[in-house]
């Protein structure tokens, strides 16, 4: 197969997938649509973390914190200031970007496991911070903030199914997700992406090539936090409820797990990460009622042995083998 026809098939495939994604919500129940919505939200969050961990080689077990900050930013803006839901997303991005940059600065001193543990401290501290009495007037304390789901701006029916708020939010999230994936792709395929990978693979050589290490690493942390924060805002809007206990340390763990499951330094891998975060806990729950987390842990360790490159790594390996067979 030559390049031109490869490209043609790529566009045809993408168009088919897009049509399927647009029709799908009308074929499913509202609850399933809501779940798919969360899959996309987690995919964006995982994408954000993947920019940091996969491309730049910095670990974070604290991205749940940024997710929480994003969700709270959106909720407070909507609840206290009456800002429309779509306008909260850029604010959430900026707030989390600033926050991430501030965290990224001390993170320069840390590598590997230490960074993971230090950011984990952030993740563990977040529920406590959100419950803090001093800011209760804003955050609603332990109770959290209840939002109302945005209504679709127009009426529409397909296959005898109305455009419900969940279905409308699905399209909204789909649009934002596509934009974020495009942004990430554009950011990472050029000069900046190469600089990030160079820093990951050989920091000293990267410095010698004229890459400003501290600036790049800090800004990467900020951008990554911004992506995840925006995902948090999307998630907050979709669930229509934020509370300190929905953002425990487990969330951060799941996000990192999503990155590894999808495949490090792989943009499409983030989608598999999102699917894993949303559906695998349910599956684990069905296998064993008493200890779903244990099943989850076993799955994780098993995956590390069988597919260390994540789903995308596995796909690439399979693809390479198939190609070798057809051509050889």
């Amino acid at each position: 197969m030559n390049q031109a026809s490869d490209r043609k098939w790529f566009w045809i495939g993408s168009a088919l997938v897009l049509v399927a994604l647009l029709v799908l919500p009308f074929l499913l129940k509202n609850y399933r649509v809501f779940q798919l919505n969360l899959v996309m939200v987690y995919a964006v969050a995982v994408l954000g973390l993947n920019i940091l961990t996969g491309f730049n080689g910095q670990f974070s077990l604290g991205h749940g914190a940024f997710y929480a900050f994003g969700a709270y930013t959106a909720a407070i803006l909507m609840d206290k200031f009456g800002v429309p839901y779509w306008a909260t997303l850029p604010v959430a991005f900026v707030v989390c970007f600033v926050f991430g940059t501030l965290i990224g600065f001390p993170a320069l001193r840390l590598a590997g496991h230490f960074l993971a543990l230090a950011t984990f401290a952030l993740a563990v501290a977040v529920p406590q911070l959100l419950k803090y009495k001093g800011i209760e007037a804003w955050t609603g304390g332990v109770q959290g903030i209840v939002l109302s789901k945005p209504q679709p701006p127009f009426e529409f029916r397909l296959f005898d199914q109305a455009l419900s708020p969940d279905r409308w939010l699905y399209f909204f999230t789909l649009f934002v997700t596509l934009v974020m994936f495009l942004l990430a792709w554009n950011l990472l395929r050029g000069r900046v992406g190469r600089a990030l990978v160079a820093i990951r693979d050989h920091p000293i050589a990267a410095t010698a090539m004229g890459i400003n290490l501290p600036v790049f690493k800090t800004l990467t942390f900020g951008t990554s936090a911004g992506f995840t924060g925006l995902a948090g805002a999307l998630g907050g809007i979709a669930v229509a409820y934020v509370s300190p206990d929905s953002f425990t340390a487990n969330l951060s763990i799941f996000l990192l797990v999503g990155v590894v499951v999808g495949g490090l330094a792989s943009i499409p891998g983030a989608i598999f990460g999102g699917l894993f975060i949303q559906f695998v806990p349910n599956i684990a729950d069905e296998i064993s009622k008493s200890a779903p987390a244990a099943i989850y842990g076993v799955l994780l360790i098993g995956l590390m042995y069988l597919m260390p490159g994540g789903v995308m790594g596995g796909v690439h390996r399979l693809w390479a083998r198939l190609r070798a067979r057809t051509e050889g």
């Binding site: 670990f59 496991h113 990192l256 200890a291 987390a293 842990g297 076993v298 360790i301 590390m304």
Partner: peptide, 28 residues
Amino acid sequence: RPLEKAPALNNVIVFIGLLLIFNACSGW
């Protein structure tokens, strides 16, 4: 032991897996 030579991230993930397993087993 099989992961001794693996990248740090894989180790972190395995540690997290162990964390989840032990936590769940304590409760179970």
